[in-house]
Nucleic acid binder design. Sequence first.
DNA 1: CGGGATCCGGGGCGATACTG
DNA 2: CAGTATCGCCCCGGATCCCG
Lengths: 111, 111
Amino acid sequence: MLDRIGDKWSVLVVSTLGGEPLRYSDLHASIPGISQRMLTVTLKALERDGLLTRTAYPEVPPRVEYELTDLGRSLLDAVMALAGWAATHHEAVATSRRDHEASGVGRAKAR
Amino acid sequence: MLDRIGDKWSVLVVSTLGGEPLRYSDLHASIPGISQRMLTVTLKALERDGLLTRTAYPEVPPRVEYELTDLGRSLLDAVMALAGWAATHHEAVATSRRDHEASGVGRAKAR
DNA sequence: CGGGATCCGGGGCGATACTG
DNA sequence: CAGTATCGCCCCGGATCCCG
């Protein structure tokens, strides 16, 4: 379970979708670095898990909208908390990380 | 950043460590399914990021204790929210997943 | 007891090409 | 526009051995 919601892309999709429904291409544009494949795979998985709904409009050109379900929205809260933490403390983490590098973690490299 | 704190094992280690310090073997026993390697790797990463401290006691047999830092404890809140969500809704997710299976997602399998 | 080093297999994931 | 199918690489992560 944790590895599902802990999944990087799922988190990003859910948080991006927070609020209004979005189309496939919007999602693709809004999530930097995601590939078509991973977006599709992630969306399918999230739909299967009941976190979002997929709605296809039989128009031309085709339009498909993805929207969070209530379940998905409840997850959003928890995810936002995590994202908030990341935003708040990522500096402290980066600093600590540099300290450890300087401490000799890569000592062999110093040759 | 998200893929770091969203990491499955990190989440589990942090939540397990919530509260009292634990020894390596305690952690290994408390986290079902984690391998030695991943435990070590995860602990190192978390230490590097300043989320926990590693304390080795020069005894025999050796004893090493891991403890959350203040930073780690602040993360704990967000992590617990996520874990709580997972515990609360994993049933709904499992149900939805089964629905989709029954819907013909694996239609070829039904032969 | 608490790890580090290495080997290695499976799969996560990206890139590309094609379809409706 | 919204995907699907295929290929291939890389790296995650488990197993094993060994050391302090």
